[in-house]
């Protein structure tokens, strides 16, 4: 069976200013390979600056890799195909709130997503918007809310709604669960698990919340300074980490 997502030897570097005229190259990602099957969850963990968000940006095609391939259901993906696989891969970034248009009501924003990406008519769209809001524990009243009227955690849910409304095959969550309060997080985790069981949705979960990772991930990949360390089934990584860094990471979350 071809994997839903197959990433082969991905590398990416940035030029970074270190002085007035001095630059230094930062190798944000180095030779990263992994696969993700439908209905599974892969967690990417690693410290700040280890390249997690960079990886997410490459996967959704916002940036181009220096080297390596991204295969989606067996087909190579390039940045120019971005619109085409916009449906299949949806993502929620760390700074989800910033990516919302402050002058647009939430209902309108969700309607636009459907209008641009589906053939639904107005009634179908309205229905889907209501259903999605409900799934995410938001209310009908929120249709008329502007982004600034939500609290931080509520905004994260709005971002999730925007991602899930197109029924994607792969959802990339860049620290999208961390900012949620525990009771809300539990609801969303349950929703994600349910969707996964029902429709085989796959998740790429970028998170430092190791207890949560342990609960929902099938596989775990540890990034350190852009390089892969442990990459194995979650139970193995947690019970028998191969690298000192991974051990330290796990201990620090349990200490």
């Amino acid at each position: 069976m071809t994997a839903l997502l197959d990433v082969q030897q991905l590398s990416k570097s940035y030029r970074k200013q270190t002085g007035l005229f001095r630059y230094r190259t930062v190798q944000a990602l180095h030779d990263i390979s992994f696969t993700l099957q439908s209905g599974k969850t892969l967690a990417i963990v690693g410290e700040t600056g280890s390249g997690k968000s960079t990886l997410a940006r490459l996967l959704v095609g916002i940036e181009k890799p220096d080297a390596g391939d991204i295969l989606l259901a067996g087909n190579t993906v390039t940045t120019s195909h971005y619109r085409q696989y916009n449906h299949t891969i949806r993502f929620i970034f760390q700074d989800a709130a910033k990516s919302l248009n402050p002058n647009q009501k939430i209902g309108q924003m969700l309607d636009d997503v459907l209008r641009l990406n589906t053939v639904f008519d107005a009634t179908q769209r309205a229905q889907k918007v209501r259903l999605t809001l409900k799934q995410l524990g938001l209310l009908n009243e929120h249709i008329d809310y502007y982004p600034h009227m939500f609290s931080g955690g509520q905004l994260q849910r709005v971002a999730l709604a925007r991602a899930l409304i197109l029924d994607p095959k792969l959802l990339i969550l860049d620290e999208a669960l961390t900012a949620l309060d525990p009771s809300l997080r539990a609801q969303i985790v349950n929703l994600l698990l349910e969707l996964q069981q029902q429709s085989g949705l796959a998740y790429l979960l970028i998170s430092n919340h190791l207890r949560l990772v342990r609960h929902i991930a099938d596989d775990v990949l540890v990034l350190y300074q852009g390089k892969m360390l442990d990459y194995a089934p979650a139970s193995e990584v947690f019970s028998n980490p191969q690298h000192d860094y991974t051990r330290k990471l796990i201990n620090s979350s349990q200490a």
């Binding site: 209310l139 009243e141 009771s183 539990a186 349950n190 609960h215 929902i216 979650a234």
Partner: peptide, 15 residues
């Protein structure tokens, strides 16, 4: 147990 539902209250905070 991994991948089992977490405890959560139904519904959400009212507006």
């Amino acid at each position: 147990v991994p991948k089992t539902p977490l405890y959560a209250l139904p519904g959400s905070i009212p507006v």
